[in-house]
Deep mutational scan, measured.
Amino acid sequence: NQASVVANQLIPINTALALVMMRSEVVTPVGIPAEDIPRLVSMQVNRAVPLGTTLMPDMVKGYA
């Protein structure tokens, strides 16, 4: 199964993503693939992302 990017902490709106904020986990539904974690670093989220939430492409500015 494909691992997705999951929030490792609460990520406030407009926060630039850092490695420590993300982990990979096999979840349903599938979100952003875990292999894209390096690409996500320094991109901003466009909403608050609670701990344990799967990151979806529409949550990250400039990802989709």
Rank of each mutant, 00 (worst) to 15 (best):
A48F: 11
L55V: 11
P38Y: 14
N14Y: 15
T54E: 01
L17I: 12
A16R: 11
M59T: 05
L51I: 14
V45M: 06
N8R: 12
M43R: 11
A16E: 08
K61W: 13
P50Y: 15
P29M: 04
N1C: 07
P50I: 06
M59E: 02
V30I: 15
I37P: 00
P57T: 06
A16D: 05
I11N: 01
E25T: 08
M56L: 13
A48M: 08
P33M: 08
V26A: 09
V5W: 03
P33V: 08
Y63C: 04
S42E: 09
M21H: 09
A18T: 15
Q2T: 11
V49L: 06
D36K: 09
V26P: 08
P33H: 12
M43P: 00
M43Y: 12
A7P: 00
I32N: 00
L55Q: 00
R23C: 06
A18K: 12
A64Q: 15
L19C: 09
M22K: 00
P38C: 06
T28D: 15
I11C: 03
T28I: 08
V49T: 04
V27F: 03
E25N: 08
A18R: 12
E35Y: 10
V5R: 00
D36T: 07
Y63L: 05
A3W: 13
V49F: 03
Q9K: 13
V60E: 00
A16Q: 11
V41T: 05
V41K: 05
I32C: 04
V30T: 11
Q9R: 15
Q44M: 15
M59P: 02
P33G: 07
R23G: 06
V60Q: 00
A7H: 01
A48W: 09
M59Y: 10
S42R: 09
M21Q: 05
N14D: 11
V5T: 08
K61L: 11
A7C: 04
V60C: 03
S4P: 02
P57Y: 13
P57F: 08
N46F: 09
M43Q: 07
V27E: 02
V60T: 02
A64P: 11
A3I: 08
L40W: 02
L40K: 01
K61P: 07
V30E: 15
I13P: 13
G31T: 01
A34R: 05
S4C: 04
I11E: 00
L17Q: 01
N46Y: 10
N8T: 13
A34T: 06
T54I: 09
M56I: 06
V6W: 02
I37W: 03
L10E: 14
Q44P: 06
R47W: 06
I32P: 01
P38D: 08
Q9V: 11
V49M: 05
E35L: 10
L19D: 05
M59N: 05
R47I: 13
Q2I: 12
P38S: 12
M56W: 05
V30W: 11
G62N: 11
A16L: 12
L17T: 00
E25W: 06
V27Y: 03
A18C: 15
S24A: 14
N8F: 04
T28F: 11
E35P: 07
A48C: 07
M43I: 04
R23V: 05
P57M: 07
S42M: 10
S4Y: 03
I32E: 00
R23Q: 04
V27W: 03
I32Q: 00
M43N: 04
I11M: 03
A48T: 12
L40C: 03
A3N: 08
A16Y: 14
G62A: 09
S24F: 07
L55I: 15
L17N: 01
M59I: 05
L55K: 01
I32L: 05
N46L: 12
K61D: 08
V20K: 14
P50T: 09
N14I: 03
T54S: 04
A16V: 13
A64R: 10
M43S: 06
L40E: 00
A18S: 13
P50A: 14
T54D: 02
S4E: 01
P29C: 04
V6Q: 03
P12S: 07
V60D: 00
T54F: 03
Y63N: 04
N14L: 07
P57L: 05
Q2R: 05
T15A: 11
P38H: 09
L40N: 00
Q44L: 14
G52I: 03
V6C: 04
V45K: 00
I11L: 08
V27R: 09
V6I: 13
V20R: 14
V60L: 09
N14C: 15
D58Y: 15
G31L: 02
R39Q: 07
A18F: 06
Q9E: 11
A3L: 12
A34F: 06
G52S: 06
R23A: 05
V5D: 01
P33T: 06
A3R: 09
P57S: 08
L17Y: 00
V45T: 13
V26W: 12
P50C: 10
T15N: 04
V5C: 10
V5L: 03
N14A: 08
P57N: 05
A7D: 00
A18Q: 15
N1M: 15
D58A: 13
I13M: 12
P33Q: 06
A64V: 13
V27K: 08
E25F: 06
N46S: 11
V45P: 01
A3Q: 10
A3H: 10
P50Q: 11
L40I: 08
V41Q: 05
M22Y: 02
R39H: 08
N46I: 11
D58F: 14
G31C: 03
T54P: 06
V60I: 12
R39L: 12
I13S: 14
P29H: 04
A16F: 14
I11S: 00
T15Q: 10
G31F: 03
P50W: 08
L17C: 03
D58L: 11
N1R: 04
V20A: 15
T54N: 02
V41S: 03
P29A: 04
T53P: 01
T53K: 09
Q2L: 14
G52C: 04
S4L: 02
I13Y: 13
L55E: 00
N14R: 07
V45G: 02
I37K: 05
P12R: 09
P33K: 07
P50E: 14
G62W: 09
V26C: 07
A7G: 01
A64T: 12
Q44K: 14
N8W: 04
M59K: 01
D58N: 09
M21L: 05
Q2M: 12
M21P: 00
R47N: 06
N8Q: 09
I32A: 01
A3Y: 12
V27H: 03
Q9S: 12
D36R: 07
A64I: 13
P50F: 10
N1P: 15
A34W: 07
P50H: 10
A7Y: 03
Q2V: 14
T54C: 05
T53E: 08
M43F: 12
P33D: 06
V41H: 04
L51W: 15
E25C: 07
L19M: 14
Q2C: 13
R23N: 06
V5F: 02
R47C: 06
G31K: 02
M22V: 06
A18H: 08
V6H: 02
T28V: 11
P12D: 08
M43L: 13
S24G: 12
R39M: 14
D36Q: 12
N46R: 12
I32T: 02
A7T: 14
N46Q: 13
T54Q: 03
S24Q: 13
A34H: 07
A3T: 12
A34G: 13
E25G: 11
N46P: 02
K61N: 15
S24H: 12
V49Y: 03
I37M: 15
S24C: 07
V60A: 01
M43H: 09
Q44V: 10
I11A: 01
R39C: 15
V41F: 05
P38E: 09
S4K: 01
V6T: 05
T54W: 02
L55Y: 00
N1V: 15
V6A: 02
V5E: 00
N46C: 08
I13F: 12
M21W: 04
L51Q: 15
L40G: 00
M43A: 07
I32V: 06
L51P: 15
N46K: 12
P33W: 09
A16N: 13
V30G: 08
V26G: 04
V20H: 13
P12V: 06
Y63E: 03
L10A: 13
V20G: 08
M22Q: 00
E25Q: 10
V26R: 05
L51C: 08
M59C: 05
G31A: 03
M22S: 02
A64S: 13
L19K: 07
R39G: 06
G52Y: 05
P33E: 04
S4H: 02
D36P: 00
P29V: 06
E35M: 11
L51D: 12
T53W: 14
A7L: 03
T53N: 13
V45A: 04
M21E: 00
T15I: 07
G31P: 00
Q2E: 15
M43W: 07
A34E: 12
G52H: 08
D36I: 07
I37T: 07
G62K: 06
P29E: 06
S42I: 03
D58I: 08
N46H: 09
R47L: 06
